[in-house]
Structure formats: structure tokens, C-alpha cells
Nucleic acid binder design. Structure first.
Lengths: 146, 146
DNA sequence: GGGTGGTATTTAGTTTGGGTAATGAGTTAC
DNA sequence: GTAACTCATTACCCAAACTAAATACCACCC
């Protein structure tokens, strides 16, 4: 690992990365598959799809959101029939959240639409640039979860 | 440019990119140099540093924010002594926004602190991964502005 | 067994950062 | 010279997070 703080190139890269991520994030917020679903709600569904099921607390930690926010999000998702809430087998303080088949179908449709939007945006990139980005995607994801 | 919609690998990359960007964006929001400055305000200062000066409307378009929001942001920045507002030389409807020396100093300090945070986060990446990310930074920035 | 401290979730109330609609001033085209 | 358009602003609103406090439960120690 290079010295990220004092190496000039890395410093510039970090700065560039930050502003790009924040700007792109703001734009992505507006690209919703389902108007009634907030970006974080979508993200929670994605997490559930990857992890199977989780407690609200685990979800809050994974999404880097405070527990009360996750309570609200889970409640809204349940009201829409996208997640199921069951009592935790071992600990009656906790609950188990898992996605429904409906959520799975919506995620599939959502991916198609998101891809269309981002693909449209990425038409402004050349082949090499896209290749760079494709290589970086998993790394960025790892970084985001560290 | 490959077919981003139907190529399976690219579809996965797009999906991964989206969730990573949104999650990382949410986390970055909390890492402020100056507690009294919102992420978008910081971003505006960054844009001004790159572009010299601009009108509120130009800034709104660059940041992908509505004009009224930019009016408020610029007003807050002016109240903090970080930008200067002058009448536009050619068109009396418009104004020219430019950063002050104070803003420049703050940006420098800000970069140091941001780098420290992101560098700390990036300790979990190995050298190759960081190299990948560094190469992707300018591309991501280009994509965000398309 | 009962008290004590800690944890999971929720409720209530607040802040924040953005949006839309409507207004006023200034410019451009006809 | 007026009609149409553009830039910035004002007033109002809304969504989505937060903090603090309440509730329910577990685990440990005596």
C-alpha cells in the first residue's frame, strides 16, 4: 500500500474519487425503478438478496445507517410486501428480515432499468475507459464495505 | 463500447458500481472537514477551484442541482466568507461567484483530512486494488459529469 | 431467584438538504 | 416597443436521515 496521504498522485486520486462518487450518487438517487422506493430501500433489498436474511441491526450496520432509520425502512418494505418479518429463533429482542419473491422479481426488473440508464450515460466513454471502470467496480464495492 | 445492457459481465459491473457508489457516497457525507459545511457546498467549492468563477446557474447545472438550491448554497457560502458575489459584467440578471482565499486555504486543509480518512479506509485494500482504483478515478469523474 | 448492566428495536421529535411553483428583474427577437 | 424568454430569487414543502428516550429482552453475578 502506497502512502495515500503524502503521495501526490494518490492524493489527487482520492480527491477526484470523492467528488465523483458524491456527484454520481446524487444523480443515481433520481434514477428509481419504483418511484415509491428510496435508494436506501433499494440498497437494503440488494443486501438481503446477497445475504439471505438479517436482523434490522445487522442491516443498519451494513448500510451504515442508524438503527431507527432501518426500523422505518424495514417497516415500509414490509408494508409493500417486499420483505417478511419473523421473530428471531434464539433471541426474542431481535427479528429476522428476509425478502419475498416479489422483491426478487422487482430486483431483476430494477437491474434492467438501472443498466439502461447507466449504459446510456456510459456511451460517452470509450472502450478502454469502460474497461477500467469495470475492473474497478468490485474494488469500489469492497472499499465501500470496509 | 460493448453492449452494456445485454453483456452479462457489464451488467454485473454496472449493478456493483451503482450500489458501491451510493453506499460510499452515504459514508462520505459523514466525513466533513468543517462540520458546518454540507457535502454539496464542499463540492461547489471544488468546482469553483477548478473553473475559476461561474454564475449560480452554471453551478447548478454542473452540480446537477436545481437553481433555487444553488441560490441557497451560494448564500450560505457567502455568509461564511468562502465565496464572493459580484454583478455580472455583461448581463445584470446574472451574478459571478468566485472563491475567496479563505476557501482556498480550507480546501487545502480539507484535502488533507479527507485523504487521511480514505487512506485509513483503503488500508484494507492491497496495492493492486488501489492501483485499479486510482486508474478509475478520472474515468468515474468523467462519467459523473456526462 | 432477583437485581444489574447491556443490547435490540422502536417511538417521538428534529434537522437537513433538496425539490416545485410562482415572482421579479433583465435581455433578446420581432 | 412589446412579447417571449432567461436568470435568479422567494416562499413553501417533503423526504430521509439523525438524536434521545422508551421498551423489551438477555446474561451475568451475588
Amino acid at each position: 500500500m502506497p502512502d495515500l496521504i503524502h503521495d501526490g498522485d494518490s492524493a489527487a486520486a482520492v480527491s477526484s474519487l470523492r467528488s465523483a462518487v458524491m456527484l454520481l450518487g446524487r444523480r443515481l438517487k433520481h434514477q428509481r425503478v419504483d418511484e415509491s422506493l428510496s435508494p436506501t430501500e433499494m440498497s437494503v433489498l440488494g443486501t438481503l438478496a446477497r445475504c439471505g436474511s438479517a436482523t434490522p441491526g445487522e442491516l443498519a450496520r451494513k448500510e451504515h445507517v442508524q438503527p431507527p432509520s432501518m426500523t422505518r425502512i424495514v417497516a415500509l418494505l414490509e408494508a409493500k410486501g417486499l420483505v417478511r418479518l419473523e421473530p428471531h429463533p434464539d433471541d426474542r429482542r431481535q427479528k429476522r428480515v428476509s425478502q419475498t419473491e416479489q422483491a426478487e422479481a422487482m430486483l431483476a426488473e430494477s437491474r434492467t432499468k438501472r443498466n439502461a440508464w447507466l449504459a446510456h450515460l456510459a456511451e460517452g466513454l470509450d472502450e478502454d475507459e469502460w474497461e477500467t471502470l469495470r475492473a474497478a467496480a468490485p474494488v469500489l464495492e469492497k472499499l465501500a464495505h470496509l
